[in-house]
Design a binder for these strands. Structure first.
Length: 480
RNA sequence: GGCCCCAUCGUCUAACGGUUAGGACACCACUCUUUCAAGGUGGUGGCGGGGGUUCAACUCCCCCUGGGGCUACCA
């Protein structure tokens, strides 16, 4: 038996930006291709012209690129193969596996409604299924619009094997004569998808399990053409963190571009997504794409719907940030600093070591380090109460500034020495000096170690801010 | 409603007839410490229910319940 090379595809429709769910599907296909030495194909299923979102194709391609899982082949566009599908649809008619239907949308809607009320399973009454060749010819010559429908057997069982779930079978009486070719000449998903999977030599279809109910139709199409169906692998859907249910556009930042803007790293996203429905079989969690590709196997895919958790993604993102070299982290964080108006690569690089353990996203990194680029515009109110509004604090801060002004060298050690010396002389714990100083310098009650922070901030700014805070306190309400 | 899929800590998962049911996130302690993180140590917490099969069920089968998906000339 000659084993054909694995060819898998990710086949989104360009109706929106790439979602985390879609990204995971793409990722699994990519991992499987890498693992098998196969080919990962991108196919854009753009047959519904009414739902196209202009820049979504671009977004999908860029997002895959950014995640590090670009296609080996494609993108192929279904819109460029319109005639192929039309021709295939008519071939099915000739083979007796499909038929033209002249019913108007209005009629279909009416019939569907009636039949639903009557408790019938199938919405279409198959009115055109048995038109005589003469009737068909007459209607066509009369220029009547028509669709082409699949001629589904009226009884029997249509089953297939899902790689993860085993046999799935449908009673033909539950199935409808679905539309293959629309009256505007464009194919529906069912036709185009099957034709392309065949023409592009797809060996494994790995996609979300919401497609399971459409597989029996596809089986019928494969059979009608005499084609061998590929292996079906239906992935569980990703559930939204809040109300459960399929993850949707609303209810948070769910597109790749959104999480990118939030300051997540592609390595973390891809790693987290991979673990949402797959496990390597051991206790490893932090894994690179290469490691995951090596460990990937279809057998270890899960069939349970997984709830997406931002908490764990956040943790993982923090892991990747901490493990990243400062220089690279600085580069990646640059846009987030720029966005806040801080365009100072030198300073950014300098403060990365102070903050990388404290931020879980690039955005957070920029958010909590603003006082390195601008004077603190306010002091934390709780901090003020706790550390500022106490007798002697202004004087203490001024004295500290004075001492620091005179020290030799400006480094964490020399700063610490001066501060502790002052505390000793006054007979107070160092923290009674440290906390007010931190608040004076950063406006915050938390942050990096004070001495490292001061060293990075620079002498001039430190002295200025200490004195400024002393003044501020004296004028503050509640200070006596 | 009909059809289909799924069911282990709150969440993601390991287990593939015999384990004190393991790991991770989150949470709680303790530790480190100038704060906040990060780190270290420890802990709380789970097999949805009922029937079978078997010497033995988290593991296999059935039913119930619960969750999810599909039900368009959308994908």
């Amino acid at each position: 038996m000659n084993k054909s090379k694995v060819r898998v595809r990710f086949a989104p429709s360009p109706t929106g930006y790439l979602h985390l769910g879609g990204a995971r599907t793409a990722l699994y296909n990519w991992l499987f291709a890498r693992n098998q030495g196969g080919v990962f194909i991108l196919r854009i299923e753009d047959t519904d012209r009414s739902r196209l979102v202009p820049d979504s194709v671009q977004d999908i391609i860029q997002s895959l690129e950014w995640l590090g899982i670009p296609p080996d082949e494609g993108p192929y566009f279904q819109s460029e193969r319109r005639e192929v599908y039309a021709q295939k649809a008519h071939e099915l008619v000739e083979r007796g596996a499909a038929y033209p239907c002249f019913c108007t949308p209005q009629r279909l809607e009416r019939v569907r409604e009636e039949r639903r009320k009557a408790g019938l399973k199938i919405g279409y009454d198959r009115a055109c299924r048995n038109l005589s060749p003469d009737e068909v010819k007459a209607k066509m010559q009369g220029g009547q619009a028509y669709v082409i429908r699949l001629r589904v057997p009226l009884s029997g069982e249509i089953g297939f094997r899902d790689f993860l779930r085993g046999k799935i079978a449908y009673d033909a009486r539950e199935l409808e004569d679905i539309v293959l070719l629309k009256s505007d000449g464009w194919p529906t998903y069912h036709l185009a998808n099957v034709v392309d999977d065949h023409d592009q030599g797809i060996t494994h279809i790995m996609r979300a399990d919401e497609w399971i109910p459409s597989v029996p139709y596809h089986i019928l199409i494969y059979e009608a053409f005499g084609w061998e169906p590929p292996v079906f692998i239906h992935l569980p859907v990703i559930l939204s963190p809040d109300g459960k249910g399929k993850m949707s556009k609303r209810s948070g930042a769910f597109s790749i571009r959104d999480v990118r803007r939030e300051g997540y790293l592609p390595e973390a996203i891809v790693n987290y997504l991979a673990l949402l429905g797959w496990s390597p079989g051991d206790d490893r969690e932090i894994m690179s794409l290469t490691e995951m590709a090596e460990a990937f196997s279809l057998q270890r895919l899960s069939v349970r719907g997984a709830v997406f958790s931002y908490e764990k993604l956040l943790w993982m993102n923090g892991e990747y940030m901490r493990a990243m070299p400062d220089k690279r982290l600085a580069e990646l964080a640059m846009p987030f600093f720029k966005e806040k108006g801080y365009n100072d690569p030198q300073t950014i690089l300098k403060i990365i070591p102070l903050f990388k353990d404290r931020a879980k996203t690039l955005r957070e990194l920029a958010d909590i380090s603003g006082y390195f680029f601008a004077e603190p515009d306010s002091y934390d109110p709780d901090g003020v109460k706790k550390h500022f509004l106490r007798p002697g604090v202004p004087e203490l801060l001024r004295e500290l500034a004075g001492r620091l002004a005179g020290i030799d060298g400006w480094n964490p050690q020399s700063i610490e020495h001066a501060l502790r010396e002052l505390a000793d002389e006054r007979g107070i714990p160092a923290r009674d000096l440290i906390h007010p100083a931190r608040l004076a310098l950063s406006g915050m009650t938390f942050g990096p170690g004070l001495f490292e922070m001061m060293a990075a901030l620079g002498k001039a700014k430190c002295l200025l801010r200490l004195r400024r805070a002393a003044e501020w306190i004296e004028k503050a309400e509640g200070f006596k």
